[in-house]
Structure formats: structure tokens, C-alpha cells
Amino acid sequence: MGNDIKLIDYLRQRHSTPVAQYREPGPSQEELTEILRFASRVPDHGKIAPWRFIVYRGDSRVKLGEEFLRLSLEKTPDMTEAAQQAELARFSRAPLVVAVVSTAAPHAKIPEWEQLLSAGALCLNLVMACEAHGYVANWRTEWITYDERVQSALGIHEGEKAAGFIHIGSSDFNTPDRPRPDLADIVSWVE
């Protein structure tokens, strides 16, 4: 993991750094290519790769923010100035954003549910691959994941769904841990 943190240490302290705390630099093209290669090494029953990536960098993030604001104003014309600025910055808070797009579809042997789970694994693997390269990453969904009006602008095709948007950058913010579930509340033992 980043700065030679061992995987066990990373898992022990894994948390999401708030996207508002992200800054440059983001990964170089070479680093991002390696990150995406590592991320794609997920369980994939049938080897059908039921997902793909879309990388948003540079001015594309600003243009998408303008579209997010336009669509938000259609639904809520009396948005506060702060809410409008949040929409404009939705994809420019981090140096880059990667969409993990599920292409799950009916298949003769592989249930769609397994294909969707593979896309979820891809999201988490992408977060861990970023951390392994010394970057922070946050898996977000937000309203843009579920609003059909924005899918075309995001490059998501009919029949596809965003599994998440992974915001990637650098940060020195010391994120406090949040309460975690007690194992006694979430584990059943069958002997």
C-alpha cells in the first residue's frame, strides 16, 4: 500500500477520506494505467468482464459540473448558492474521477447478480489500488448515479449502470475513524 503500508495494516485502518479534503496531484497516466490494471483483477465468474471504466480528467469535470447544476436547477430552481457551487464542483473536487460502469446483462451461465457483485468488487479494488500507489480514493454514488437525465453526459449507455464514481487524489487530512459494527451484531456462527 502507499508508503509501504502492509495490506493487513491498511485493512485494519481502512476509511474514506472526505472528497472535500482532496488536492493535486492525482496519478500520472502511467500510474493510472497500472491502477486500473490492478483494479480489474477481481472475481469475474465466466471471465466476461461485466464492467468498464470511464476516466474524467481536466476540463471534462468542469463541463460535467455545469450539466449537474443545470439538471439540479430543473428540479430545484431555488437552490442556494452553496448548493449550486457544490454541483459545479461535484467532479472537480478531486484531480480525477473514475466511473465503474456495470454492463451486467442476461447471460446463459452467469447470473446478473454475480455480475453486479463483480462491479462492486471492482470499485473496492480500485480504491485499494489507488491507496497502494500512495493516493486517496473515495467511492461515491450520489444522485447522478440514479438520474437517467445525466447518464448520456457521463458516457453511460442504455442498459448500463454506474456502480460508483471513484474520486482520486492526494490528501494529508487525518480522517477520524467512524464507529464500526460490533461483530456480535453482524456474525452468525453455524457449527
Rank of each mutant, 00 (worst) to 15 (best):
P179N: 05
S152V: 12
S16K: 04
L71M: 03
V97S: 15
S118D: 09
P179K: 05
D9H: 13
F53M: 07
R93T: 03
L69H: 05
T33I: 14
V150F: 09
H167F: 11
D78P: 13
L64C: 04
L36G: 06
I168C: 03
E112W: 00
S16H: 03
L88I: 14
R90W: 09
G26S: 05
Q21L: 08
N174S: 07
Y10G: 12
E131S: 03
L122A: 13
A108K: 15
T17E: 06
Y10K: 13
L126A: 03
Y22Q: 14
P111G: 10
F53V: 00
R57W: 01
Q21A: 15
F173H: 11
G159N: 00
T33E: 13
P111C: 02
R93E: 09
G159Y: 02
Q13T: 15
I110C: 03
D78G: 11
A20Q: 15
V55N: 08
A163F: 01
E81M: 11
Y10T: 13
S28W: 08
R149C: 04
H157K: 10
V19A: 11
G58I: 10
R140I: 02
N3W: 12
M79S: 13
A108Q: 15
T141F: 01
V42Y: 00
E74R: 04
R37I: 01
T80D: 11
K161E: 03
D44M: 11
A132N: 09
I8W: 14
E158D: 10
L73Y: 02
C123E: 02
E142F: 05
A129C: 04
D4T: 14
G169W: 00
I8P: 08
D177L: 05
G46K: 11
P179E: 04
V42D: 01
P50G: 06
F68S: 07
F53W: 11
D182I: 02
F68Q: 04
S170N: 02
M79E: 12
I54D: 06
P77M: 09
V190A: 01
G169D: 00
V150G: 04
E142Y: 10
E67R: 02
P50C: 09
I8Q: 15
V187F: 05
T103R: 15
L73Q: 12
S152H: 05
M79R: 08
S171L: 02
N125Y: 00
Q21P: 04
F91N: 13
H133E: 02
S60V: 15
T76I: 08
E30Y: 04
S16A: 12
W113K: 03
R12C: 14
V190T: 01
D78A: 15
T76S: 15
A49Q: 13
D185T: 05
G159L: 00
T76F: 10
C123A: 00
E112A: 10
S72P: 13
H107M: 07
G46H: 06
I35P: 14
F165L: 08
T76V: 12
S40A: 14
A20M: 15
R37Y: 08
R93S: 12
V98W: 05
F91C: 14
G46A: 10
S152N: 05
R180D: 00
P43Q: 08
G169E: 01
A82D: 10
H133F: 06
G155P: 13
A162M: 07
P176H: 03
E24F: 10
K161R: 02
C123Q: 06
S28T: 14
V190F: 11
G120C: 03
